[in-house]
Simulated scan of single mutants.
Amino acid sequence: MFTIYGLSGPIFQGTLEELGRMPPVMARDPVTPVRRIGDQVEAGIAPEASVAATGGLSRSAVEAYQAMMPQNLERGPLYHAQQIMQRKLIIVNSRDNVTHAWRTLVDHQIHQAPVIDDSYRLVGIVSERNLLTKLNVADGRVRDVLARSVSDVMATPVVAATVLTDIRRIARVMLERDVDGVPIVNDNGELIGFVSRGDILRAVVTDPPLSVWR
């Protein structure tokens, strides 16, 4: 189950499928496929054209790989957010200045942090990318600071998940919404954890292996 939190509070609650009908917080420009020909790079090659040009080698490679895989693979365990989330939260306030937020990320060696208001309500998420649009950082030092607060640069609204959300669904939200982490809330909407890309990668390489096909 996912919830979208904005400055005024929760504005959506529903499943991953329902979330897909909501507009994204941020969107990147579409990536143009490229193909290398010798020392030249040719742009604008459609994926199907690339496969056709190689004589269908991609499909053959996939089929060969599948043929080598054992058919009786034992599925590993499934993981929920509460099993891998970070419980020691590093947060910033929406009224903090951008320099304080940057130092918070750097000092704790993290790439993003949930943003709360004075009532401890989740209102957004701030990342290194957000802050670098307002900061000039050279040699690890902040220079030429613009008078901005976290509320001016944070991404909002923000998608949060419940503790029992399948982490594969959280990973899909990260990809589709272009975010590096998802806050975790309890049934009362209180911020209690955070799942980053690194947390999911660690779960994938855990022994016994994570089941990614169920």
Rank of each mutant, 00 (worst) to 15 (best):
I167N: 03
V182T: 14
K134W: 09
P157M: 04
V115W: 09
A138P: 04
N188E: 15
T133L: 04
L135F: 02
G193W: 11
G124T: 02
R197P: 06
N136D: 14
I167P: 08
A161L: 03
D118F: 01
S151L: 10
S149P: 00
V137Q: 12
E190T: 03
A113D: 14
L135K: 08
V137S: 00
R177V: 08
V163M: 07
S151A: 14
A160D: 07
G193T: 05
N136P: 10
E128S: 00
G193C: 03
D166Y: 08
R141E: 15
R172G: 14
G181L: 03
G124F: 06
R197L: 02
L132R: 12
L146E: 15
G198L: 10
L191W: 06
L131R: 05
V145Q: 06
D178A: 14
A155V: 13
V195Y: 06
K134V: 15
V142N: 01
I170K: 06
D178R: 11
L164E: 11
A171T: 00
I170H: 07
L122N: 02
I167Q: 10
K134C: 12
G124S: 03
G181P: 12
R148P: 13
V195N: 04
M174I: 12
Y120M: 07
I170Y: 01
T165R: 02
R168C: 00
S151N: 14
